[in-house]
């Protein structure tokens, strides 16, 4: 006989992520601006640090609290950052043969190893 019950809301993580994405789109509680080729992308440090080894190393220390603008490399990687930010907030990674190399380069820079592997698989499959 059960003494207690745990009620597990199976869609809770996606509900939280969806709300965080809406907060991002509305600029609510966003605390960092990523400058990519001069273009600003607003985001929440907590989401960035949870998803990327690069951001973890930037924000984990006390010095990270004061970082409110961060420049990311322009050039061929630049077009890959926005799809990665969308991925962090939605769990959906949009890839096409045209964009995959830039997403791969950006994911490598941000130390998002699983996304890197997914990009490699996508590029490999599109060759075959």
């Amino acid at each position: 006989r059960a003494l207690g019950y745990v009620r597990e809301f199976t869609r809770h993580s996606s509900d939280v992520l969806g709300n965080l994405n809406e907060l991002r789109l509305r600029g609510i509680l966003t605390d960092v601006t990523l400058l990519v080729g001069g273009q600003p992308l607003r985001a929440h440090k907590a989401v960035l640090i949870a998803c990327s080894g690069f951001f973890y190393s930037i924000f984990r220390g006390r010095a990270g609290v004061g970082v409110d603008v961060l420049s990311l490399p322009g050039g061929p990687e630049a077009g890959g950052f926005a799809p990665l930010l969308d991925f962090m907030y939605t769990s959906r990674l949009r890839l096409s043969p045209a964009t995959a190399p830039a997403v791969l380069a950006a994911a490598t820079y941000l130390q998002m190893d699983h996304v890197v592997q997914a990009c490699h698989r996508f590029i490999q499959a599109s060759y075959e």
Binding site: R1, R7, T10, L23
Partner: peptide, 22 residues
Amino acid sequence: HEGLVATVKEAGRSIHEIPREE
């Protein structure tokens, strides 16, 4: 059994939905 905790799955929405920006 004493101390047994049952897990019940809830498939519905877990929190409020922040309204989408117009």
